[in-house]
Design a protein around this nucleic acid. Structure first.
Lengths: 196, 196
DNA sequence: TGACAAATAGTACGATCGTTCGCATTCTTA
DNA sequence: TAAGAATGCGAACGATCGTACTATTTGTCA
């Protein structure tokens, strides 16, 4: 746990920042190293290949998502409160100052959704887990009596994911200041249709 | 209006195909020219710069969207039938064989949403017009008595856009065969909440 | 403190990027 | 059909890409 790991952390933080703006392919070893005051070869040695760098960037982003969105939601009571917390955390996530280009996972997903390889595999798995988490939250809401018993948890996950994507798009591309409000109204409608 | 325009069409068709898979930056003049059996410089001469090539790719994609999604919808009667046609055409659009990487406009939007420049400007305008079209369709549905008078057309546009994005994501990244069904159920719920 | 390992820098490589320029070919049309 | 414009090719440019190798510095610990 020496100096190497510390440097790698510094590299990955900046790398996530760049990847959120320019994508995983737009992220370049030369640019990254010069912005950090490191040599290209010195930085490269930490990862061995660009593929590996990209994978670690994704890994870092996913960990940060779980830390800032998932884990705080888990501290809320099961059922609708937890779902509500998850949703609100997720909206804030899109404005993380450490990711000036928006969610790097969304960016990478669009970039790699048609290119087989380890990046795509990693992203697919991460998304699958995210979906499962949402579906499980819905299931707990059913058990808690907040949601009706005939609510389809997977359908709920789909709609929640869609609203977040719509928010991301409206917020970042259209710069619409009402994006958050729009997303909340839409989600509230979904919630209303699920309630017991 | 001779041979030049014809070649340019051929170039742009293949360019859209590549851009849908690899993004606008991943689209490279060398690859594009060799796949078409043209010389790099000969192809380049048609556009003068990569920026211009990218812009024309976007222009081509938008024109195709209007031809395959918007215009057919306009042939349906105002109100809910037109909205329904718009939605269904849009879902089919994501599977256009000429765009094996999915909607290039979605890809480019994520790619350029934080990079100022003519590409971003073009995309923002295109999206604005798409939103306006959806909102107008909702307004016509209100006038036709299909939708309640207190429906917010802009909110409707947001939710429709979100569902299409969710479908795109679930379909292309997760390869979930139920993506279309999920999107239809979600949209039906939105429609139900709007009906008079 | 000295030896060994870990971390970083330096340099160079082949490939490819977007772009320029001059020349050949092909079209159009007077 | 001859002239001129439109179109396309070939070669080359400087820059940058990811990567490989060899030094040199820095850190760790017996």
């Amino acid at each position: 746990m020496g100096k190497g790991a510390e440097t790698r952390e510094r590299i990955l933080e900046q790398a996530v920042r760049l990847a959120s703006r320019d994508g995983l392919e737009g992220l370049t070893i030369g640019t990254l190293s010069s912005e950090l005051g490191l040599s290209k070869s010195g930085l490269f040695a930490h990862f061995g290949s660009k593929d590996e760098l990209q994978l670690q960037v994704l890994q870092t982003a996913v960990e940060r998502f779980e830390e800032l969105v998932i884990r705080p939601a888990l501290r809320a009571p099961r059922g609708e409160p937890r779902i509500h917390a998850l949703f609100e955390n997720w909206l804030v996530w899109a404005d993380e100052e450490a990711m000036p280009g928006g969610c790097p996972i969304v960016a990478a997903s669009v970039e790699f959704d048609d290119r087989p390889g380890p990046q795509r595999d990693f992203l697919a798995l991460a998304h699958r887990r995210r979906f499962d988490f949402m579906a499980k939250a819905a299931r707990l809401a059913i058990e808690a009596g907040h949601f009706r018993a005939d609510v389809d948890p997977d359908q709920f996950a789909f709609e929640m994911d869609a609203i977040v994507l719509g928010h991301h798009h409206t917020h970042r591309m259209l710069r619409d200041p009402k994006a958050g409000e729009r997303a909340r109204i839409a989600f509230e409608r979904v919630l209303a249709s699920c309630r017991a």
